[in-house]
Design a protein around this nucleic acid. Structure first.
Lengths: 204, 204
DNA sequence: AGACTTATCTACCACTCGTTACAAAAGTTG
DNA sequence: CAACTTTTGTAACGAGTGGTAGATAAGTCT
């Protein structure tokens, strides 16, 4: 098919390894030496395939989003706004403590602050985090139109609240909190969420 | 008084400048060049006074905790558990968007993930974050004993929830969210908090 | 004054960073 | 086969990293 010497490594497997390194050490903390070792390739192969360290991160972020999209679709398919919130928080509690990955969220661990020369990385990550909030807001706007949220509810505020709690759970998981701790936070958070179309009841 | 040549810079002023650099760029992202320039001193003075880059961070963290202690004392003096929660979230919304400081929380911005040679930094920051949760938990345990929380309430879970939301607000502020956005999150979060000793009402 | 103690500055250390020439290797195409 | 195209490994690039000698300056002590 394609001409020239064929690539000796699997791009997707390599991206998975790179993702793990960025996840565990952050963008600045992840060195080319770590990345190339984990990916099992040498620097020239990395640069030929991804352009730069930043290009590699973006490719890894794309793959991360791709992985998450199935979960997010399931979350948004919740019958009611409250179902959606419950699914969202539960899925976060599980995924952020999945032993197959570093703890927390790549979009948070990747880097909230970076050094000289990578100042744009935090923006990139923030933009990807905002994506989730946008999806939730859209779903909650629909829920309000469907009469699925009480009158006084603010769909945008609820979406931002959930997304903020998710970020907080990322920080918590990154500190070594176990799955049960995250589930507890999810449970308490859900009490802030309006029930059906009426008023709430006894929160925890 | 003390013998030898007197120090030509003010330790506390220098620490404030260093704090700002760590806050804005994270531990790994903050280079000695940035730090010495901001502090207005040369590397040997820095090392004589603080021992190492890590020593400087810890000194800055101590100063950060000192600054916050007054706010935290005010928060814990709230009459009821709900007052405490309200004061806590409000104070976080204000302080994390204080234009006098970089956005967010130093204990989050400082570094959730670090590179080789500074793997212990995230632990240090996590330990300091846990301090706040511990203080809240202590206050809520007292509140329960005073009959200030409903029967089924879990003081530890509530403390962890608030501390998690605070971390999330740090991430949000770091993404450029304005003060009003954080206040909104605080308001919604408070709906998860039990009212008085009875059941809750219509949340937002 | 002179001995002593501590801080400051200039210059530099060994090392690591992200990135890239260059040539050899491994394929496809005529 | 030879021409072409792309990938791979070795080795290195300049720039910047955290950290430090060693000399000098600026004070206090006897």
């Amino acid at each position: 098919m394609t001409m020239g010497r064929p690539r000796a490594f699997c791009t997707e497997k390599a991206l998975d390894e790179a993702m793990e390194v960025f996840w565990r050490h952050g963008y600045d903390g992840a060195t080319l030496a770590m990345l190339t070792k984990a990916m099992g390739i040498k620097p020239p192969s990395l640069y030929a395939a991804f352009g730069s360290k930043e290009g590699l991160l973006k490719a890894a972020l794309d793959r991360y989003a791709e992985r998450r999209s199935a979960h997010m679709r399931y979350v948004l398919e919740g019958a009611t706004a409250r179902d959606v919130a419950e699914r969202f928080l539960s899925s976060i509690a599980e995924s952020h403590t999945d032993p197959a990955n570093p703890p927390g969220c790549l979009l948070v661990q990747g880097g909230l602050a970076c050094g000289a020369g990578s100042e744009n990385i935090p923006f990139e990550l923030a933009a990807r985090r905002a994506q989730t909030e946008t999806e939730l807001r859209g779903r909650f706007l629909r829920a309000r139109d469907e009469g699925d949220l009480p009158e006084g509810s603010d769909p945008a505020a609820l979406a931002r609240f959930l997304s903020t709690v998710a970020s907080g759970m990322g920080v918590l998981a990154s500190s070594g909190a176990d799955r049960e701790a995250l589930r507890e936070v999810a449970r308490v958070s859900l009490a802030a969420f309006p029930r059906g179309r009426g008023a709430g009841e006894a929160p925890a």
